[in-house]
C-alpha cells in the first residue's frame, strides 16, 4: 500500500482500464492538456493521445448523448462533467436516452458508459457549482449511482463502474480530491463491486449511515465519542446509492438499535429518506430503541460567504447534537 490522493486514484483507475481495453475513450471539457478543472486527468492525453482523450466543446448534452451513442455502438466511454451541477444540462440524454435505452428497445443493446462529475460544497463556488444532486439520478431506473469517500474506494469502484454494462453516474467529491489515503500498488488490480456498503468503523451503540465527504466527518465525531467513552458508534459508508446494499443497513440497525442518517444534500427529497424507509420497512423496525433520524443539508441553495456555506451542511457540531439526541 502507498498513500495517494483521491484524484490520483481516479486517474489511475481510468488509465489502467484504458491500457487494457481500447474500447474505452474519455470525453470532457478541458480534460486534455489542462488536465481537467480539478487536475484529475493530468498526464492522460500525453499517454493516450487525442483520439482517446477528447477535449470537447462546452456541450454537456451532446457529450453525454454522444457517449451513449458510442456505447450503443461498441465503445465504453467515460464522460467528465466539470461540475455535477452541469448534469442539469445533460439530463435529457442521461435520463431519457442512456437510462431507458435497453429497456425501451426490449434488451437489444446496452449503454456501458460512466459519467463522472464532482459535487458538493465547501469551495466557495456558491449556488451553481456546489450542489449534491445524487437523489435526482438515483430516482431514475436504469442508472447506477456511486459516491466514493476514500482514494481506495474511488479507484476500486471506478474500475467496476467502467467495466459495468450500464450507465453509471460516478459522483466525486470536490473537497476529497486532495485527501490522501492508502491504495494498493499499481500492479495489484483490485476492484470493489457496486452495491456493497462498507463498515468504516465498527461500533455497538448506534449506527451512522452516510456517504461521500460526510464519511470522514462522521468518523471524526465517532472517534471523539469513543475517546470520551460516550458511545461506540458504527459508521457505514453506503458507497453506491444504486444498487443499495440494503442488507448491510438493516443488519447494522438491528445490531445497534439506533440510526442516524447523514448527507450533505438538502434534506427534503434527499436520499436519506430512502435509507430511513429501508430500515423502518424492514424487521429492523422491531429492534429500534429510538426513532431513526435524518441529518441533511438545510433546504437552501449553497451560499457564498464561507461562514454561511459551512453552516448549511451537517457540521461536526450538528452531527454531535443529533447523536446525543438519539443516545
Amino acid at each position: 500500500m502507498r498513500d495517494i490522493t483521491y484524484a490520483q486514484a481516479i486517474n489511475e483507475a481510468m488509465s489502467e482500464e484504458m491500457r487494457k481495453d481500447d474500447s474505452i475513450i474519455f470525453l470532457g471539457e478541458d480534460i486534455g492538456v489542462y488536465g481537467g478543472a480539478f487536475g484529475v486527468s493530468r498526464g492522460m492525453i500525453e499517454e493516450f493521445g487525442e483520439e482517446r482523450v477528447r477535449d470537447t466543446p462546452i456541450s454537456e448534452l451532446a457529450i453525454t448523448g454522444a457517449a451513449a451513442g458510442a456505447a450503443m455502438n461498441g465503445l465504453r466511454p467515460i464522460v467528465e462533467i466539470m461540475f455535477s451541477d452541469f448534469m442539469t444540462l445533460a439530463m435529457e440524454q442521461l435520463v431519457n436516452q442512456a437510462a431507458k435505452n435497453r429497456f425501451q428497445f426490449g434488451g437489444q443493446g446496452s449503454v456501458p458508459m460512466v459519467l463522472r462529475a464532482p459535487g458538493g460544497s465547501g469551495t466557495g463556488a456558491a449556488e451553481q457549482h456546489s450542489q449534491s444532486l445524487e437523489a435526482w439520478v438515483a430516482h431514475v431506473p436504469g442508472l447506477k449511482v456511486v459516491i466514493p469517500s476514500t482514494p481506495y474506494d474511488a479507484k476500486g469502484l471506478l474500475k467496476s463502474a467502467i467495466r459495468d454494462n450500464n450507465p453509471v453516474v460516478f459522483l466525486e467529491q470536490k473537497l476529497l480530491y486532495r485527501v490522501k489515503g492508502p491504495v494498493p500498488e499499481i500492479e495489484d488490480d483490485y476492484s470493489i463491486p457496486l452495491g456493497v456498503a462498507d463498515v468504516k468503523r465498527e461500533g455497538k451503540d448506534l449506527t451512522i449511515i452516510t456517504y461521500g465527504r460526510m464519511v470522514p466527518r462522521c468518523l471524526t465525531v465517532a472517534e471523539r465519542f469513543a475517546e470520551a467513552k460516550e458511545a461506540d458508534i458504527e459508521v457505514i459508508d453506503i458507497r453506491t446509492l444504486v444498487p443499495l446494499d440494503k442488507k448491510a443497513l438493516i443488519d447494522s440497525a438491528k445490531k445497534t438499535g439506533r440510526v442516524l442518517v447523514v448527507h450533505e444534500a438538502c434534506q427534503t427529497g434527499g436520499f436519506g429518506g430512502e435509507i430511513v424507509s429501508t430500515i423502518v420497512e424492514s424487521d429492523a423496525f422491531f429492534y429500534l430503541d429510538a426513532p431513526v433520524k435524518r441529518l441533511g443539508g438545510l433546504d437552501v441553495p449553497i451560499p457564498y460567504n464561507p461562514q454561511l456555506e459551512a453552516q448549511v451542511v451537517p457540521t461536526e457540531e450538528k452531527i454531535t447534537a443529533a447523536l446525543r439526541e438519539l443516545l
Binding site: L61, A62, G65, G69, A70, N73, G74, L75, Q104, F105
Partner: peptide, 24 residues
C-alpha cells in the same frame, strides 16, 4: 439504433455512434 420520443433526442446519439465508427 431506434426511434425516439424526444424531439432531437437521437441527434447526440447519432453523433456518438458516428464517433465510434470513426474511432474504429
Amino acid at each position: 439504433l431506434g426511434a425516439n420520443g424526444v424531439v432531437a433526442g437521437g441527434m447526440p446519439i447519432a453523433t456518438g455512434a458516428a464517433l465510434a465508427q470513426k474511432y474504429r
